[in-house]
Design a protein around this nucleic acid. Structure first.
Lengths: 126, 126
DNA sequence: CAGTATCCTATATGATACTG
DNA sequence: CAGTATCATATAGGATACTG
């Protein structure tokens, strides 16, 4: 029994070589989180996601949705109509990600008073 | 009963004006997530966090820890010794954040095979 | 409508050197 | 050891105009 125990505790995700880290880098992102939270309510058109996730630009939204699609988290349905209609929805895998991301969003909403108070205290001192 | 129901579903965190969004922007970040996950194992010295969170630069680690401290998520203990010793640990509030962030890290580790497979499929087509 | 293309700026991050 | 300072670069993101 030594103090060395800590060195046995390691998370792959903290490791530079584990590919899970590239995944974490993508999902631990504010735009990703907001888009996945928005899509958690169901299948949506591009424009609706754009409206729901306030302040996101079309460029960033397009990129975020593409990345999510590439990682198998979002499915894209394009209808050959004029004007075009494109819908997005979480895949089953994406729904498993929605749970922790929604939890993160809820955390932010629930604890914002404490966070704001902490910031005031901190800023008052320095 | 109309189709308008969806407009009743809104998350503060998706709103440009709600301050909870500034909090989400900070916590939905790869370095924040990794540092909080690392600190989840207990109080650590700066150098140990630096080693545990592989690849983070001292500059980024310093900034991440300061932001977390400012938001009341991490406590900093500096000992006036030579050479200096500084320890960091999650506050009670920080521990409530650790749960969803650790869940996000676990998600990344558990689902990396599916994500990698999805990427291959996607990249093979375009 | 759902993007894309282009240009431009801001922020994040990296590398190196230095200090109490 | 635990940072800070500085410089340089990369990547993210914003604004605008345009198109199938």
């Amino acid at each position: 029994m030594t103090q060395q125990l800590d060195s046995d505790v390691h998370f792959n995700v903290l490791t530079e070589t584990c590919p899970s880290r590239t995944s974490l880098a993508r999902i631990a992102n504010k735009w990703t989180a907001m888009v996945v939270i928005a899509l958690g309510t169901g299948r949506m058109r591009f424009g609706d996601v754009h409206t729901t996730v306030q302040g996101i630009s079309a460029k960033v939204l397009t990129g975020t949705l593409r990345d999510l699609e590439r990682d198998g988290l979002v499915a894209r349905y394009a209808y050959p109509e004029i004007p075009p209609r494109v819908e997005y929805e979480l895949t089953p895998l994406g729904r498993t990600l929605h749970t922790p991301l929604r939890a993160l969003g809820s955390w932010a909403e629930e604890h914002i008073p404490e966070v704001l108070a902490a910031r005031e205290t901190y800023d008052a001192l320095r």
